[in-house]
C-alpha cells in the first residue's frame, strides 16, 4: 500500500444528460489501485460502478461527460492523466496498459472471423512483431485456460464460458498491467463463473496483474477480492479489506446489504432494504442513503458525509463515525 498507486482516480464526477435532466452517475469519487491489488467495486444497478470503471479507460461517451477529476496512470514514462491523453496514446493505453472485459463482451466477438484472426488483429494493431504473433496467440489462449485448437473456431461454435475465455485472451493480448472485469461472469452459470474467476486469480499470481472486479454480487467478491469498495448512488460509501468489511461492516448500507443476502445456513432470516435509491437527477443535500437508513439522524439530511479513514485503512462515509 505504500508504493505509488498504479492507477489513481482523483475526485472524478460523471454526468449523463438525458431528456433535459442531468443525472449525476458518479459523484466526486477517489480511488487508488496498486500494483498486484485485487480490488472489487460492488454496487446495485444505478450505483455508478460501471460508469466509474469506464473512466479508467476514458470510455465515457455521449450523453455522458466527465464533469471534473483526473485518472492518473503510472506508466513507464511517469504519471499521465488518462482523461487528457492524445487519441493515439489512448489507443495504446487501452490494450497495453489497461484492458477490460465486459458482460456483453461474450456477444461482441466478430461472428465471421476465426478466434485466431481476432487475436492477431489486436496484436498487430498494437505493434506486436509479426513473427511473434503466432506464438503469442497460443500463449494467450493457454493463459485463458483454452486449448490452442480452438483458435480455428468461429465464435458461434463456442459455449458462453469459452467465449468469455476468448475475451480474457483478447484482453491479455498486449500484456496489460491492469485488467478490469465488468460483470464479466454475471451471465454465466455458477460452475463456469468459478472456473473463470479462479483463472483470473491465477493470472494475477503468474503475471503480477492488478485486477478490478465490478459486480453486483457482494457474496462473490468475498471469495475473490482483497479490497472492496461499496458504491451507492454514485459515491463510494465504504472501503475496506474483505475480512474487515464482512466481519465489521460500518456503513448502514453495507450492513443492510449483507443482511439481505441468503446464505447456505438454514434458518437465518434475511430482509430487504426499504425504499429505492435516490433520483440522481435531483440535488441531494445530505447523505444519499439517509431516507432508507435505520440509523438516520438530523445531520444526515443536512450535510453529506465524507469518506474518511476510521483506522486500519477502513474507510467509511457516514456521520456515525
Amino acid at each position: 500500500m505504500m508504493s505509488f498507486p498504479l492507477l489513481e482516480v482523483k475526485d472524478i464526477s460523471v454526468e449523463y444528460g438525458v431528456d433535459g435532466k442531468t443525472i449525476k452517475a458518479v459523484n466526486h469519487v477517489n480511488l487508488e489501485i496498486n500494483k498486484g491489488d485485487v480490488v472489487a467495486i460492488v454496487g446495485e444497478s444505478g450505483s455508478g460502478k460501471s460508469t466509474l470503471a469506464m473512466t479508467f479507460l476514458n470510455l465515457i461517451e455521449k450523453p455522458g461527460r466527465i464533469r471534473n477529476g483526473k485518472v492518473n496512470y503510472r506508466g513507464a514514462k511517469g504519471v499521465v492523466d488518462v482523461l487528457r491523453m492524445r487519441p493515439v496514446d489512448l489507443m495504446r493505453y487501452r490494450w497495453k496498459e489497461v484492458s477490460m472485459i465486459f458482460q456483453s463482451a461474450m456477444n461482441s466477438l466478430n461472428p465471421v472471423m476465426r478466434i485466431e484472426g481476432q487475436l492477431r488483429d489486436v496484436m498487430i494493431e498494437h505493434g506486436t512483431d509479426e513473427s511473434l504473433v503466432d506464438a503469442k496467440i497460443d500463449e494467450k489462449l493457454k493463459l485463458a485456460g483454452l486449448t490452442t485448437s480452438i483458435k480455428k473456431s468461429y465464435p458461434h461454435e463456442l459455449s458462453g464460458g469459452m467465449k468469455q475465455r476468448v475475451n480474457i485472451a483478447l484482453a491479455l493480448a498486449c500484456d496489460p498491467k491492469l485488467l478490469i472485469a465488468d460483470e464479466a461472469t454475471t451471465a454465466l452459470d455458477v460452475v463456469v463463473q468459478r472456473q473463470i474467476l479462479t483463472r483470473l486469480l491465477k493470472l494475477k499470481q503468474d503475471l503480477s496483474l492488478s485486477l478490478v472486479f465490478i459486480t453486483h454480487d457482494i457474496s462473490l467478491v468475498a471469495n475473490i477480492a482483497e479490497i472492496i469498495n461499496v458504491m451507492y448512488a454514485g459515491k463510494i460509501v465504504e472501503r475496506a479489506f474483505a475480512k474487515q468489511l464482512f466481519e465489521n461492516p460500518l456503513h448502514p448500507y453495507t450492513e443492510a446489504l449483507l443482511q439481505s443476502i441468503p446464505t447456505l445456513e438454514k434458518g437465518t432470516a434475511i430482509k430487504g432494504i426499504k425504499g429505492t435509491p435516490p433520483d440522481l437527477s435531483k440535488e441531494i443535500k445530505g447523505c444519499p442513503f439517509a431516507d432508507r437508513c435505520p440509523k438516520m439522524f438530523d445531520r444526515c439530511l443536512a450535510e453529506p458525509p465524507e469518506l474518511k479513514n476510521v483506522g486500519d485503512n477502513h474507510y467509511v462515509s457516514c456521520h456515525l463515525y
Binding site: T198, S219, N223
Partner: peptide, 27 residues
Amino acid sequence: KTLIDSIPVPDPNKKWNTDEIGGQISE
C-alpha cells in the same frame, strides 16, 4: 457437489484458491 462448491459465499475466510475445479467446460 460441483454446483455447491462453486457458489460464492459471503465469507472472506473462504477465499477461492487458484486451482481450477470441475473438469472441462464445453457444451
